[in-house]
Write a protein that binds this DNA or RNA. Sequence first.
DNA 1: GACTACCTAGAGTATATACTCTAATAATAC
DNA 2: GTATTATTAGAGTATATACTCTAGGTAGTC
Lengths: 232, 232
Amino acid sequence: MKTRDKILLSSLELFNERGERNVTTNHIAAHLAISPGNLYYHFRNKSDIIYEIFLEYEKLVDYYLDIPEDRPLTLDDMMFYLESVFDGLWSYRFFHRDLEHLLDGDRRLRQDYREFTDRCLDAISRIFEKMADAGIIEPQSDELRSAMSLNVWLVITNWMAFLKTAHACEESVNLTLTELKQGIYQVLTLEIPYLTAAYRERVLALREKYRPQLPETREVDLSVGAARWNTV
Amino acid sequence: MKTRDKILLSSLELFNERGERNVTTNHIAAHLAISPGNLYYHFRNKSDIIYEIFLEYEKLVDYYLDIPEDRPLTLDDMMFYLESVFDGLWSYRFFHRDLEHLLDGDRRLRQDYREFTDRCLDAISRIFEKMADAGIIEPQSDELRSAMSLNVWLVITNWMAFLKTAHACEESVNLTLTELKQGIYQVLTLEIPYLTAAYRERVLALREKYRPQLPETREVDLSVGAARWNTV
DNA sequence: GACTACCTAGAGTATATACTCTAATAATAC
DNA sequence: GTATTATTAGAGTATATACTCTAGGTAGTC
């Protein structure tokens, strides 16, 4: 593998594990056992590394959220979208963690991310539209669908942060993909009232699969209050 | 005013304006025209300053979210809760911006914040319960109410981040309290399907007041795509 | 006035971090 | 082979940042 690609890969790995803020270019170089000079031969600065990683992330999500216009959507499609988006979120999880600071430091990234958000919101809205066409949910006004899509986006992109701040008690306890995907439970919660009678039970059953489990890592003395949101 | 209080006040102000990450203890001292030594006489370290500010924030929100148990809730109560919570969010807006990093650096804060979150989720859930008692929304199962409360929390605490990342195009453009409160529109969107016939129209009318306006600061060439989520 | 507790100044330090510079080495083209 | 280009090492730098240390001032009390 080319050094350049190795740098991108290691950066992503380290960023995800420790957070962008805690990973310096020297760390990345050391992790690859190359010199800082070498790293800076391939990338002008740290922002450039982050930007390239964002482009990969963007490409992945755009690929996942490509909506077929030649056929109706199915429940399987919906679940695929959800699973995929959370997979993407997981693979590039450092990104949403330090989003504001990352955008503050890079004009290109700020611009691109904004357009990316808009595309995602459109895609979510379009998915709702096609789910209504397919009789999975009741059709809604454009206005309501847009506002709902935005709420879905907020839940999806911030579920991870919630887990890390409100949930994990120890600094060292790392999240798992399984825990992250419990966010799907929350997203499906948003859909419940709009489900048609024909699909309601099937979706509720799917949702049940993602119901948060009582995390064993949680400190015992806090588990009663802490677990309230996922035990009732 | 005591130097100690001045430090807390200036710190909050600077953190809110520039983000905690961009404000050093030396900045705070310089802003107050006192010496770093003086600042460190009053606070052992930066974390202590942040922790004390958090305690104030916590106290404020706990005060706002005190739910009267001797009488039913009204629509006015609900709107008061929403307005108050967003006011609190605004006054301490630096906090949720760098939340993960702040918690990473302070064990006490991590613990306290977690308990704070649990209290807030309980309060939201209790508000929904009492709104059902009052006939404003249809009663829901405990499980659904908890999951909904969590979604409300996610929307509330991350609305600001959404505005800053997806919305404001220029680094220099600062948010206003008015824009922040458009988050109330999003929260009320979550409630819509649960509203009783008796209250539906009244709540929808209230919601309309918070509908996002087309921001004039947005760049023109992007306004079509960008505005989609709030123009339909 | 003198004792004490509190408060303040400001120079200074250890460490970190993004990034540079020069020289050397490998790969490729001709 | 030789010239050229691409790659790499690694010491080094400018700047920032959280925090320390010493010395001195101020306010209240007896």
